[in-house]
Design a protein around this nucleic acid. Structure first.
Length: 257
DNA sequence: CATGAGGAACTTA
DNA sequence: TAAGTTCCTCATG
């Protein structure tokens, strides 16, 4: 697990203070760290609201406030001139855009901006920023933290990802595995292609992949035993199979795109 | 000892 | 009802 990835949307100041805190208590569980990170995210959102004099709910933003938010995000995360690409959109317009449409506006930073907006949009939590008690009404935000924005998609975006609008749908295991495989920079240590054209991949760290899947689905008890059972369900559905010469932890997508 | 196949009952969206 | 999840037995190297 690479905790640093989770800090992608934090400012440097909070990053450093969190890092110091974590360093002092390395026995802290993953869960506590998540709570801390999310607590910091909430504070950042809160700060931005006061600074920009905008509401925390993007749906209520005027086009001017959208520009404010974009400029702020641009500034905070060093995204060159992205605000120019979203001229004249109200908050409602912005929220109605899919991730694919964000990417159309900005190939380089579209998914990053989308993720940032989603943090705001899914912010209907019961929060108490002062005591750092964070409850989620929407695990989507948590998912986004697991999939860092700072990286660009490597390789093509798959048809199903774009067309099915899966971000509003419950994610499928095979899609999740593809998401990991699409980000070798982040996840190749735990899952990677052996032959991308043939759709053959290997799970290098079964426990880690299972843990990620468990987080994504909010199933803390997930393990490779259960994950692999789910993969095996794909055999008769024609989604994933074992390659010709079966090898441990190696599977193959039956319809690689 | 971790992986692999698959039955069966159960849960969750 | 689909898509897993949980638990299980038995097989393999």
């Amino acid at each position: 697990m690479e905790p640093f990835k989770w800090f992608a949307i934090l400012s440097w100041g909070t990053f450093i203070s969190l890092f110091i805190t974590l360093d002092q208590s390395e026995a802290d569980g993953l869960e506590q760290m998540q709570t801390m990170v999310l607590g910091e995210v909430l504070k950042d959102v809160d700060t931005a609201c006061k600074l920009l004099n905008i509401s925390p709910d993007p749906l209520g933003w005027s086009s001017l406030q959208v520009q404010k938010w974009l400029l702020w995000t641009e500034h905070m995360y060093c995204l060159p001139r992205v605000s120019m690409l979203f001229q004249g959109l109200s908050g409602q317009d912005l929220c109605s855009l899919s991730e694919a449409q964000f990417r159309q506006h900005s190939a380089q930073f579209g998914d990053m901006l989308y993720a940032h907006l989603d943090v705001w949009r899914s912010g209907t939590w019961k929060n108490d920023v002062t005591t750092n008690q964070v409850y989620f009404s929407n695990l989507k935000m948590f998912n986004d933290l697991l999939f860092p924005y700072s990286c660009v998609y490597e390789g093509p975006v798959f048809f199903a990802d774009v067309v099915c609008g899966y971000h509003n749908q419950p994610i499928h295991l095979w899609q999740f595995l593809r998401e990991l495989l699409l980000r070798p920079h982040n996840y190749s240590h735990c899952i990677r292609w052996l032959n991308k054209e043939m759709g053959i991949f290997k799970i290098e760290d079964s426990a880690h992949v299972a843990r990620l899947w468990g987080m994504r689905k909010n199933r803390p008890a997930m393990n490779y035993d259960k994950l692999s059972r789910s993969i095996r369900q794909y055999y008769k559905k024609g989604i994933i199979r074992k390659p010709e010469e079966s090898r441990r932890l190696v599977y193959q997508f039956m319809h690689p795109i």
